[in-house]
Design a protein around this nucleic acid. Structure first.
Lengths: 351, 351
DNA sequence: GTGAAAGCGCTAACAT
DNA sequence: ATGTTAGCGCTTTCAC
């Protein structure tokens, strides 16, 4: 994170960015009142010469300068949602949830940044907003950067592994969700189950593998978990699946505990021409709008995506108004296993 | 659009939003220099006591106040992308394209608003950004609101019908794209083709229907176009398809020229159990990441989504730097027809 | 109910 | 190269 500006970065010449806006003083003069009165009028207070002010505001097309107001009020009336990638449907649904409950006064400002740029992004966003919902904090440094902003912050989805912090959190019960998925497969008779694990450094990656391991451990039969590592991306899912299915004792079922990974995995299975669920059962994570149109529709571990965003925003807003709970809240949402057609008993030959 | 604040709207008490940040004066005092020197240092200029300043900046965790800087410089270093719905994959891809070329100095701030709230959203966003990319301007009033901001603006995807304006525009050649799709169907032998038209008030809706009509008109054979109206949403696509397929002389092919509409249409076809392409051919609009996993994968009219965003951002940035072209640019992108497996000749019985 | 005046934190002359 | 000063547009005491 560079705190000094880039000497090379071309700066905008002042004023180039547009036409100068009307100021409150111009409106005041036009209406024959003081700027104080205009200010009061704009905030909805009772004013004697309201008519005249309204006319001047309309005629001059006056809109208060957000920077000036923000400077004076020490308030931006904006919140930021930070995530890695807007094209991830889960993120889009989350943002939707945030916006669905945000008070209209707040601007929700959406920012994306990869893990490496996250600190810098937080650095420069911090002063532009009153609060932050961060769905991208995978490392301790990210949390430190968030705290350094001095703004109320809610962590969503990710938490850095083994890092103490006192921020509010809205996460999933990933362990239980994954356990339930793998239990389903075991119940169907699968004994060799491939799991496409995510990065160990990320809580989500660890927990979802943990859940799978728990299920195997608790099973009455001997269950072999074949773990393939991936980066939780589409390509990673594709390649991990290819590795899993290329080996001698291939799994009879695959659990891909991430939406992109699952998509990549399904593509690989599709390209390999393996019949699902006849030769291979499959469970993914997070729903896609069009899962019903897949052949077969994949069983997935689902979550209340937009509720997750809504809860985070509600929590954030109570903090911004200074009346949140005394201690940091930790909200854990339950997942549900949505059964579709991608799971069945293992093929007889390989049982 | 209400210009006065809502008397009822609870405002944030000043200061509640977080911890007060360090100011430039505090840093100056700590480093034993003037605030001017700190300001220069922060902007990357050469400063003699750089060491001391750097130390103070780090120790006090100083970050310049964006509101104060913006007020003074008359620049926000932020741009807004306005769209209807972030969960639409096309919008996400567009935003991606915008961010991929935006200079790092700019914050891209993403805002959603339905057609009815759009004016209000533009009103309050206008003063917070240096430029706007609007992928939601479907009515004249929207364009007027955009112009009233006094900020450089690029219209993307939508333009209000029959409305003169002098804004830059990055749109699709929707007429040609739709014509090509319907020509494909006609070439396969289809003579009764269902088209799920969008709202007539929206340029995209009109043009895509126009293209279909052009294709029918130019055909050497007699082609009957069965037009069903929809709102370009998922449900609208579903219902329009149900209507189309419920009638006596049902079409042998359907063209659904919008991504959500197409998805809804496919769901309806799927629910009805109609074999595609054996009994019914299908063409949609805009690709989905997982189209290959559909059965059958639908042929679609595709566009360079993220290039569209990138072009818009480049245009906007040149305007913001005051060195854009003298007259408004109108960039029209070509679409491509991506053939997948959802099209074939019409069934013999109904040919 | 209204206006005058001060000041939020920053940058840009200007003088040194 | 550095410091002094003024002022961006707004809200807010404080007096009237």
């Amino acid at each position: 994170m560079s705190e000094r500006a880039d000497k090379d970065g071309e700066r905008l010449a002042p004023g180039t960015a547009g036409t100068p806006n009307t100021t409150i003083d111009e409106v005041a003069r036009a209406a024959g009142v003081s700027s104080t009165t205009v200010s009061r009028y704009m905030r909805g207070e009772r004013v004697r010469r309201a008519e005249a002010v309204a006319a001047a505001v309309a005629r001059l097309n006056y809109r208060p300068n957000a920077a000036a107001r923000g400077l004076r009020m020490r308030t931006t009336e904006a919140v930021a949602v930070v995530a890695h990638d807007i094209t991830n449907p889960y993120v889009a649904a989350l943002v939707r949830g945030v916006q669905s409950v945000a008070s209209p006064q707040f601007f929700s400002l959406f920012v994306t940044a990869g893990p490496d740029e996250l600190e810098a992004a937080i650095f420069s966003i911090g002063t532009r907003v009153d609060g932050i919902i961060c769905a991208a904090a995978t490392e301790s440094a990210h949390v430190e950067a968030l705290k350094a902003t001095g703004r109320p912050t809610v962590l969503v989805e990710f938490e850095p592994a083994d890092h103490e912090h006192d921020l509010d959190v809205v996460v999933l019960d990933n362990v239980a969700g994954s356990r339930r998925a793998v239990e389903e497969l075991i119940g169907l008779g699968h004994r060799r189950i491939g799991v496409i694990a995510g990065p160990d450094a990320i809580s989500v990656g660890r927990d979802r593998l943990q859940g799978a391991e728990d299920a195997a451990q608790r099973a009455l039969a001997d269950v072999e978990l074949l773990v393939a590592r991936s980066d939780f991306g589409f390509d990673g899912g594709y390649q991990a699946t290819a590795r899993l299915l290329g080996r001698g004792a291939a799994p009879t079922a695959i659990f891909a505990p991430n939406n992109l990974t699952a998509l990549g995995s399904l593509h690989c299975i599709h390209d390999l021409g393996i019949p699902v669920p006849d030769s291979l059962s499959f469970i993914g994570f997070d729903p896609l709008a069009s899962h019903e149109l897949f052949t077969p529709p994949p069983t997935t571990v689902d979550r209340p995506e937009s509720e997750q965003g809504a809860l985070a925003m509600r929590l954030l807003e109570s903090r911004m108004r200074g009346r949140g709970p005394a201690t940091a809240r930790r909200i854990v949402l339950e997942t549900t296993l949505t059964l579709r057609a991608s799971c069945g008993p293992p093929p007889p030959a390989r049982r």
